[in-house]
Amino acid sequence: MTLKVGDKHEQVVIENVNRTHIVKYAGASGDFNPLHHDDTKAKDLAGYPSVFAHGMLSMGLTGRMLTDWLGATALKKYGVRFTRQVWPGDTLTAKGEVTDVKEEGGKQLATIKVVTVNQNGESVVEGEAVAEV
Protein backbone atom coordinates (compact mmCIF):
# COMPACT_ATOMS: atom_id res chain seq x y z
CA MET A 1 0.00 0.00 0.00
CA THR A 2 1.06 3.60 -0.47
CA LEU A 3 0.47 6.21 2.20
CA LYS A 4 0.73 9.98 2.07
CA VAL A 5 0.72 12.65 4.73
CA GLY A 6 -2.86 13.38 5.77
CA ASP A 7 -4.22 9.89 5.07
CA LYS A 8 -6.64 8.87 7.81
CA HIS A 9 -8.32 5.77 9.09
CA GLU A 10 -10.77 5.33 11.92
CA GLN A 11 -12.62 2.41 13.39
CA VAL A 12 -15.01 1.78 16.26
CA VAL A 13 -12.95 -0.77 18.20
CA ILE A 14 -15.36 -1.56 21.04
CA GLU A 15 -18.99 -0.68 21.73
CA ASN A 16 -20.48 -0.45 25.20
CA VAL A 17 -17.56 -1.86 27.21
CA ASN A 18 -18.84 -4.30 29.81
CA ARG A 19 -17.32 -6.24 32.65
CA THR A 20 -17.11 -9.38 30.54
CA HIS A 21 -14.84 -7.58 28.07
CA ILE A 22 -12.64 -6.46 30.92
CA VAL A 23 -12.53 -9.87 32.60
CA LYS A 24 -11.69 -11.53 29.31
CA TYR A 25 -8.74 -9.19 28.89
CA ALA A 26 -7.64 -9.91 32.46
CA GLY A 27 -7.67 -13.63 31.74
CA ALA A 28 -5.83 -13.35 28.45
CA SER A 29 -3.21 -10.86 29.58
CA GLY A 30 -2.75 -12.22 33.10
CA ASP A 31 -3.33 -8.80 34.67
CA PHE A 32 -5.62 -9.62 37.59
CA ASN A 33 -5.35 -6.29 39.35
CA PRO A 34 -8.68 -6.24 41.26
CA LEU A 35 -9.23 -2.61 40.25
CA HIS A 36 -10.28 -4.04 36.89
CA HIS A 37 -12.72 -6.74 38.02
CA ASP A 38 -13.70 -6.21 41.66
CA ASP A 39 -16.08 -3.27 42.11
CA THR A 40 -15.84 -3.42 45.89
CA LYS A 41 -12.05 -3.18 45.83
CA ALA A 42 -12.09 -0.47 43.14
CA LYS A 43 -14.29 1.63 45.44
CA ASP A 44 -12.83 0.80 48.84
CA LEU A 45 -9.16 0.31 48.00
CA ALA A 46 -8.73 3.23 45.65
CA GLY A 47 -11.88 5.36 45.66
CA TYR A 48 -12.95 4.74 42.08
CA PRO A 49 -16.66 4.73 41.20
CA SER A 50 -16.41 1.23 39.70
CA VAL A 51 -14.00 -1.06 37.94
CA PHE A 52 -12.37 0.35 34.83
CA ALA A 53 -10.69 -1.26 31.83
CA HIS A 54 -6.98 -2.01 31.71
CA GLY A 55 -5.08 0.71 29.84
CA MET A 56 -3.54 -2.12 27.85
CA LEU A 57 -7.01 -3.19 26.71
CA SER A 58 -7.43 0.26 25.14
CA MET A 59 -3.98 -0.04 23.57
CA GLY A 60 -4.76 -3.53 22.29
CA LEU A 61 -8.11 -2.46 20.83
CA THR A 62 -6.39 0.52 19.21
CA GLY A 63 -3.73 -1.80 17.78
CA ARG A 64 -6.46 -3.52 15.80
CA MET A 65 -7.23 -0.27 13.97
CA LEU A 66 -3.55 -0.08 12.99
CA THR A 67 -3.14 -3.69 11.83
CA ASP A 68 -6.51 -3.73 10.02
CA TRP A 69 -5.39 -0.60 8.17
CA LEU A 70 -1.68 -1.24 7.63
CA GLY A 71 -1.23 -5.01 7.84
CA ALA A 72 -0.58 -7.55 10.58
CA THR A 73 3.21 -7.13 10.58
CA ALA A 74 3.59 -3.56 9.31
CA LEU A 75 4.27 -1.92 12.66
CA LYS A 76 7.85 -1.01 13.56
CA LYS A 77 6.92 1.07 16.58
CA TYR A 78 3.73 1.66 18.55
CA GLY A 79 3.57 3.71 21.71
CA VAL A 80 0.84 5.42 23.70
CA ARG A 81 0.08 7.47 26.77
CA PHE A 82 -3.03 6.55 28.71
CA THR A 83 -4.90 9.83 28.97
CA ARG A 84 -8.20 8.81 30.53
CA GLN A 85 -9.73 5.75 32.08
CA VAL A 86 -12.22 3.61 30.19
CA TRP A 87 -15.37 2.71 32.13
CA PRO A 88 -18.12 0.15 31.61
CA GLY A 89 -20.53 1.62 29.06
CA ASP A 90 -17.87 3.41 27.03
CA THR A 91 -17.60 3.09 23.26
CA LEU A 92 -14.17 3.67 21.74
CA THR A 93 -13.18 4.89 18.30
CA ALA A 94 -9.54 4.59 17.28
CA LYS A 95 -8.18 7.10 14.77
CA GLY A 96 -4.93 7.21 12.85
CA GLU A 97 -3.49 9.95 10.66
CA VAL A 98 -0.28 9.85 8.65
CA THR A 99 1.98 12.73 9.71
CA ASP A 100 5.20 11.82 7.89
CA VAL A 101 6.35 9.46 5.16
CA LYS A 102 9.98 8.59 4.47
CA GLU A 103 11.48 6.36 1.80
CA GLU A 104 14.08 3.97 3.17
CA GLY A 105 15.70 1.24 1.09
CA GLY A 106 12.79 1.10 -1.33
CA LYS A 107 10.26 0.92 1.49
CA GLN A 108 7.95 3.51 2.94
CA LEU A 109 8.17 4.31 6.63
CA ALA A 110 5.02 6.12 7.71
CA THR A 111 4.59 7.89 11.02
CA ILE A 112 1.03 7.79 12.27
CA LYS A 113 -0.54 9.88 14.96
CA VAL A 114 -2.87 7.71 17.00
CA VAL A 115 -5.74 8.80 19.21
CA THR A 116 -8.61 6.79 20.60
CA VAL A 117 -11.66 8.63 21.89
CA ASN A 118 -14.67 7.66 23.96
CA GLN A 119 -18.29 8.43 23.13
CA ASN A 120 -17.84 11.98 24.47
CA GLY A 121 -14.92 12.65 22.15
CA GLU A 122 -12.44 12.56 25.05
CA SER A 123 -9.15 10.83 24.33
CA VAL A 124 -8.33 7.68 26.28
CA VAL A 125 -5.12 6.83 24.45
CA GLU A 126 -2.78 9.13 22.51
CA GLY A 127 0.37 8.09 20.78
CA GLU A 128 2.28 7.35 17.66
CA ALA A 129 3.09 4.42 15.44
CA VAL A 130 5.65 3.86 12.72
CA ALA A 131 4.74 1.41 9.98
CA GLU A 132 6.66 -0.03 7.08
CA VAL A 133 4.30 -0.25 4.15
Binding site: L35, A46, Y78
Partner: peptide, 14 residues
Protein backbone atom coordinates in the same frame (compact mmCIF):
# COMPACT_ATOMS: atom_id res chain seq x y z
CA UNK B 1 0.37 -0.44 36.87
CA UNK B 2 0.18 -1.67 40.41
CA UNK B 3 -2.36 -2.53 43.00
CA UNK B 4 -4.15 0.37 44.63
CA UNK B 5 -2.82 3.72 43.50
CA UNK B 6 -0.59 2.50 40.71
CA UNK B 7 -1.59 3.23 37.15
CA UNK B 8 -0.08 2.46 33.81
CA UNK B 9 0.95 5.80 32.28
CA UNK B 10 2.61 4.88 29.00
CA UNK B 11 3.54 1.84 26.95
CA UNK B 12 5.87 1.77 23.96
CA UNK B 13 6.87 -1.10 21.69
CA UNK B 14 9.53 -1.47 19.05
Amino acid sequence: GGLGRGLHAEQHYE
